[in-house]
Amino acid sequence: MFSILIAGRLPQINFQQVSETQFVIPISDTDHVNHLVVFMTGQIPFPENYGGGGNWPSAEGPSWIFLGKITNVKPSAIFKIGKIKDVESQIGSSLAPTLFSGFQHQTAIPTDGLLGISVEPLSQLDQQIQPHDITPSTVASNVEFVSKMLNNFVNYVTSFVQNVPGTSEQIVPLSIVQTWYNNFQRRINENPNFWK
């Protein structure tokens, strides 16, 4: 169902199923791996309203760091793993959800790393947060965020436009801008991915 691709290597499909909904694949020589591509092979789709969460084992215990997701609609993703050790040393393992609890970081194949995929409802995957600086920060993603934020701002604010009597000028009360800002801050604190 899944495969991974690391630059300079052949695609790998040797995922091991460790539970009904959890799969792992060993990755060797992770010191020379910055990014890996995870993709569905197209042979078996996810059940409706389900997707796969990519996870990397935390160095500090049996918990895992959420890297991102793949779905039937978005069947591939690039995960940045090169900075995980640096980020972990700065933020600790508190961000890592407890997944694959029955699976110890052991495998018969020599490995430096292990990628896990957990099949979960999309609603649960959407609530998981990727640690800062682990996922690739792409210009396209930043542009999409800014575009959606500004469209939301303009649509909200222009619905409160008032004409200035005797002129062709239009104004928006500052309190409207402040209300939009407060609402946006609240929503992004509740779910950083709400804008998607």
Rank of each mutant, 00 (worst) to 15 (best):
W64V: 01
W56G: 01
F66R: 03
Q128N: 11
S94I: 13
N55W: 04
W56V: 05
D112L: 08
S63T: 12
Q104W: 01
I91L: 11
T107G: 07
A108G: 12
N55C: 14
V157E: 03
V73A: 14
S63Y: 02
I44T: 14
L115R: 00
N155A: 15
H132W: 10
E60D: 15
I84V: 12
I129G: 10
Q124W: 01
P75G: 04
G82E: 03
P136F: 03
Y156T: 05
G54H: 02
E88D: 13
V143N: 10
K74Q: 11
G61Q: 11
S93G: 13
D86E: 10
P62T: 05
F39S: 04
P57Y: 04
I70V: 15
P47K: 10
F66K: 04
L95F: 14
L125C: 06
T111I: 08
A59F: 07
N142G: 15
W56F: 10
Q43D: 13
I91M: 07
G102Y: 08
G82H: 06
D126T: 10
Q127T: 11
N55A: 13
L150S: 05
N49I: 08
A108T: 14
K83M: 07
V154Q: 12
I65M: 00
F39I: 01
N151D: 13
E60Y: 15
L122F: 07
I129R: 15
E144N: 11
T107R: 06
T111S: 15
Q128E: 08
V73F: 07
Q127P: 01
G61H: 09
I65R: 00
N152F: 03
N49W: 09
L99E: 08
